[in-house]
């Protein structure tokens, strides 16, 4: 009897953690998205789909709905920026991971520590450092003008480019680590074998190293895309008002906008979207693993 009960008993702590920290908040979010906004924040009955309707439509003075692409565009920009963040991180992360994986074993631990070093500093502080670098009187513009290359400050801040730089900077380690994990398992003799079979360095990289790094890049893309999609700190500081992402919209809905159901509806939408993305990625991974 006790023998039978034990599997459930042993998994119960994990189930409890998942339940308390994942399912309950998600349930709350879903519930709030289906309530009516109360005038001073919070939400109240009756049930309503108004939060979801507001994503696509706005209400005219006579209460008729008309289509408004504003939020849709912000959502689209978020997806594009998060996607670009994944792609750029992969392009930058691969050489970094390869460099670390090809060092002697005693150096690899130290180098991995260096990669994760930014995690020890508050993300707000680090993002604000980019403000100091990119702003009109920032280091980059001062240096360019000092060198006589430009005569007035380049507009480096408050645009999508600045947001992208900040996102890549924040999430690059999440890409480096899984690629490293994939490359670290790569037997260096495979590369020797490729050279032995008449492959140049470039072709050995393209045919052996790159394909074997792809699973790591795929895992890294998931770990970068999902959090980048909903990030609000970077677009807030570096994008200013001009490069809003979905995270900023959710944040303002809960704070200044006092429209909790709308914020909850957006959150639910993002969560569902990421979930669909994860399921597709997991399916593809499984299909490729079984030839």
């Amino acid at each position: 009897m006790t023998q039978r009960a034990s599997p459930l008993l042993l998994t119960s702590p994990a189930l409890a953690v998942i339940g308390v920290f994942m399912l309950v908040p998600l349930g709350y979010g879903l519930a709030y998205s289906l309530l009516t906004a109360s005038p001073y924040g919070g939400a109240e009955l009756p049930l309503s789909t108004e939060g979801y309707v507001q994503i696509l439509f706005q209400r005219d003075f006579d209460d008729s709905l008309y289509f408004s692409p504003t939020y849709l565009l912000i959502l689209l920009r978020s997806i594009v920026l998060a996607g670009l963040t994944s792609v750029i991180s992969a392009a930058l992360g691969l050489p970094v991971a390869w460099f670390i994986a090809s060092r002697p074993a005693r150096w690899q631990g130290a180098l991995l520590f260096v990669v994760t070093l930014p995690f020890w500093v508050n993300s707000l502080v680090r993002t604000y450092c980019w403000v100091l670098l990119l702003r009109d009187q920032g280091l980059i513009n001062m240096a360019l003008q000092g060198a006589g290359l430009t005569h007035e400050p380049l507009p480096l801040m408050y645009n999508d480019g600045a947001t992208l730089v900040g996102l890549v900077y924040n999430f690059l380690p999440f890409m480096v680590l899984p690629i490293y994990a994939a490359l670290e398992r790569l037997d260096p003799r495979l590369i020797e074998a490729a050279h032995d079979l008449y492959a140049t360095r470039r072709r050995a990289f393209l045919r052996i190293v790159l394909p074997l790094a792809v699973p790591g890049m795929r895992a890294g893309a998931l770990m970068v895309f999902a959090p980048a999609l909903g990030y609000f700190l970077v677009p807030d500081l570096l994008g200013g008002g001009r490069s809003l992402m979905i995270g900023n919209l959710i944040q303002s809905a809960f704070t200044s906008g006092r429209n909790w159901p709308f914020g909850a509806a957006l959150s639910t939408l993002v969560t569902a979207g990421v979930l669909v993305f994860l399921v597709i990625a997991a399916r593809r991974g499984r299909v490729e693993a079984t030839p």
Binding site: D187, R189, L190, E192, A193, A194, H195, D196, L197, Y198, A199, T200, I208, P211, L212
Partner: peptide, 20 residues
């Protein structure tokens, strides 16, 4: 001469087959 320019091929101890 680098390995890829030698008309010589190797059978490695651990075979080093390309897993993908």
């Amino acid at each position: 001469t680098p390995p890829h320019l030698r008309p010589v091929n190797t059978v490695f101890q651990s075979y080093a087959l390309f897993p993908h």
